[in-house]
Design a protein around this nucleic acid. Structure first.
Lengths: 191, 191
DNA sequence: GTGCACATGTAATGTGTTACATGATTAT
DNA sequence: ATAATCATGTAACACATTACATGTGCAC
């Protein structure tokens, strides 16, 4: 049994959560929306779907047209997948994982993907806790980085390496500011 | 002959540009500095170094201690690599590549790595041109994203998906602001 | 019924991750 | 001499990319 689920697999599960879709639909989503940097190539998506199916996270959609799901003898026809109960549980568990320092330092993109999928899959309260913890870790991490920056500056002249490091810090601080604002808006929306 | 050079290989070449180092030195740099999310595992670095050596981009350092470079019979001893002329040319060519819209949209991390390595490897003027072009593409891209955001907002309610998209835009705009400021500082430093 | 867009499959390749193994060097 | 640290090597595995192959349905 394989323990780990790849980010791509979670992305697929997350997209299937609101509605059943075919591999082709998913590819188009990856190709045309904000999720552009996930694969979109058939060589990654179809195998990933088969892995999810083998694990029981997704299944051919029952409520689907002419010859029903379980009977796709000789394929090459549009095949719609739905998230199963197990798949939904797996997705939710991932969404509920506590945020660590390493998550914000090393895996920001994955963290943001998780946030994007929260609506509809976890209670609003969990989303707010997520943001709180995100703010805490981001705040700590950006402080760490700023301290390192001062050390670097003391040793080196003005240097593109130092400037690039600064760019990273700026981007992180922008995300932090966004998080505070987002939490305020969600709180207001919840009341 | 293999055409493509991986980002990790460029990262290694860039680190070897200012001074010759061993694989272990490079790993420590990856493990402890701002370059944290590059591998740092022996299973990625040593093979990458051998690929670079096979391609003639790096070579055992000549100006190195007791038994000189070309004679590393039974190894398992510290082995220092230096960037060759060819390696330097390859690195420079990569640094000078024009920035495209897809670079800023899909490969920002690589772009920033290139920027970090510019000092000492390309003329200051090239760095300034790089930033100009970066600003232009980032400006265009963030405008594109903002337009999409309005479309999304018109259709959907307040939604973590939309908020996550906003976070990405904020981060990009912060990078853009940084670029303008960085260019101004470099200009001043150049005068 | 021919051509094109839709839809899926898959083999070859390269690379990163993990986990382990093992040879040198240094300190005690 | 032994242990710890330094330093490199490598095998198993999973995955993404590329490029190609193939089937399906609709428009004309």
């Amino acid at each position: 049994m394989k323990a780990k689920t790849s980010t791509l697999e979670y992305a697929l599960a997350g997209l299937l959560a609101p509605k059943a879709q075919s591999g082709y639909d998913l590819r188009k989503t990856f190709a045309t929306t904000a999720m552009r940097h996930y694969s979109d190539s058939p060589g990654s998506i179809y195998p990933a779907l088969r892995r999810l199916e083998a694990r029981g996270w997704i299944a051919p959609d029952a409520g689907n047209d002419s010859d029903d799901g379980h009977q796709r003898e000789n394929a090459r026809r549009r095949q719609v997948f739905a998230l199963t109960r197990e798949g939904r549980d797996g997705l939710t568990a991932w969404l509920m994982l506590p945020i660590t320092r390493d998550d914000v330092a090393l895996r920001l993109a994955e963290i943001m993907l998780r946030f994007a999928f929260m609506d509809g899959n976890v209670p609003r309260a969990a989303t707010l806790v997520f943001l709180e913890r995100f703010e805490r870790e981001m705040d700590g991490y950006t402080r760490e980085l700023r301290a390192n920056l001062e050390t670097m500056r003391a040793k080196l002249p003005l240097h593109t390496g130092v400037l690039a490091f600064e760019a990273g810090i700026h981007a992180m601080e922008a995300q932090l500011a966004w998080a505070r604002q987002a939490r305020a808006r969600l709180l207001e929306d919840t009341r």
